[in-house]
Amino acid sequence: MRDSKHALESVIHGAFLLLGLITVGCVLLITVYLILSGIPAIRQIGLFKFLFGRTWASTASTPQFGILPFILTSVYGTAGAMAIGVPVGFLTAVYLAKAAPPAVKGAVGAAVSMLAGIPSVVYGLVGMLVLVPGIRTLFHVPDGASLLAAIVVLAVMILPSIVNVSVTALEAVPREYEDASLALGATATETYFRVSVPAARSGIAAAVVLGVGRAVGEAMAVMMVSGNVANMPSLFQSVRFLTTAVASEMSYSSGLQRQALFSIALVLYLFILLINAALNFFLKRGKEE
């Protein structure tokens, strides 16, 4: 009786261990698959030519597979989205965490989580019909589907990540810090920006990094507003991101072209792993502080 109970316990323990290891298994699966399917094309094309080639012409008679335009578009697009999204998100977060009256905080907080919940294709759709024509008429360019449109859409899409993580960090700042600052004669607003924000800097940095990850990884919304042509990035040109490069040719690709798409995904994955490592670094430092 005792033995059978013991055996049952070990079996169940084993089963839960297996469940626990599933996440690790999934990460390994994804990593191994991307490496296995991404390496062949890079070897055939040549690493340097692949990463720094300036022309992507996958269906030409002498195909060229240079992904520098995609890498730079992703970098510039993300940087642009951060330039707009970070200040707005950061200031919103300080307001929500410190200055807002409870009712306003509830309303704006709900708005922010709504922003996080809206599907990316809906952003893409609104971007296509509002933003793209808007850019065309405002800047007198032939086509509004451009890097700029993608930047604006991404800036809106990363707002909730930045706001939510920053608010959490700001709310964790010990009350005593702020009380001390107030007692020394600083006003409330000065205290928020000169005491609370520096104290929460790791968490805010984590928020920014999380936003970078979201922007780099977004595919559908960007695909719908950026025009999707493999140009070198320029604000009013139609461009293609790393994510959209994978998505846009997948359905009709074959052979080396298809393998090159897997290689692009591998490059994207490496970017994301780097960003995740940075995120973890800031989160851990935030906890230690």
């Binding site: 626990g20 595919a219 792993l273």
Partner: peptide, 21 residues
């Protein structure tokens, strides 16, 4: 720590990569 790191990594992976894999 390994399992939690794996979970965090999973939540950071873009959906297009999930689609591909």
């Amino acid at each position: 720590a390994v399992i939690e790191y794996a979970a965090e990594t999973l939540s950071g992976i873009p959906s297009i990569i999930y689609g591909l894999v």
